[in-house]
């Protein structure tokens, strides 16, 4: 599935929720099922700054695609980062760099997160794109 297809899938799921509580219950559910990052990545080096809660994000390359893993000490944050992983993980670095992540706005996440919190969200996306950029550059150097 392409990034756009995955985004549409998420937007469709969120359109089913009538109120904020359903939406957050869903995020909490996803926060509990995030693929847990290996403990060795839960260090300063993998910590994303700009979040009230702590988020650790790691990336690796497999078959030309970037695989993201993450964890957070807060459940809602973990749910949000899991959504990002669902859309961006297992995609090529080029595709990750090209997307504008419009689904974040469409599912009303950005508007419901205060500036400091959404900075956290922004930092997560920025960090994922940074990883993609690193892998893209590495690939170009090898070619």
């Amino acid at each position: 599935m392409t990034i756009t297809e995955k985004e549409h899938q998420v937007i469709e799921e969120f359109s089913l929720f009538d109120d904020w509580m359903d939406k957050y219950n869903y995020l909490i559910e996803m926060g509990k099922t995030t693929p847990i990052i290996d403990e060795k990545f839960k260090t300063e080096q993998y910590l994303i700054s700009g979040c009230q809660s702590r988020v650790w994000l790691s990336a690796e390359m497999a078959d030309g695609k970037v695989i993201f893993k993450a964890d957070s000490d807060a459940v809602i944050t973990k749910g949000i980062v899991n959504l990002l992983i669902r859309v961006l993980s297992n995609q090529t670095p080029e595709d990750i760099l090209a997307t504008d992540m419009e689904f974040v706005d469409k599912i009303g996440l950005k508007e419901h997160l205060s500036p400091t919190r959404s900075n956290g969200l922004t930092s997560m996306i920025k960090q994922m794109k940074l990883y993609a950029l690193v892998y893209k550059t590495k690939k170009e150097q090898q070619n």
């Binding site: 509580m21 957050y24 909490i28 809660s53 807060a74 459940v75 809602i76 944050t77 919190r117």
Partner: peptide, 21 residues
Amino acid sequence: DIHPYDAGTIIDKFGIAVRTG
């Protein structure tokens, strides 16, 4: 066992302004 950020996010939705952090 609940992160203050999680709790604050939900409390906010009740129209209640508390500080977390």
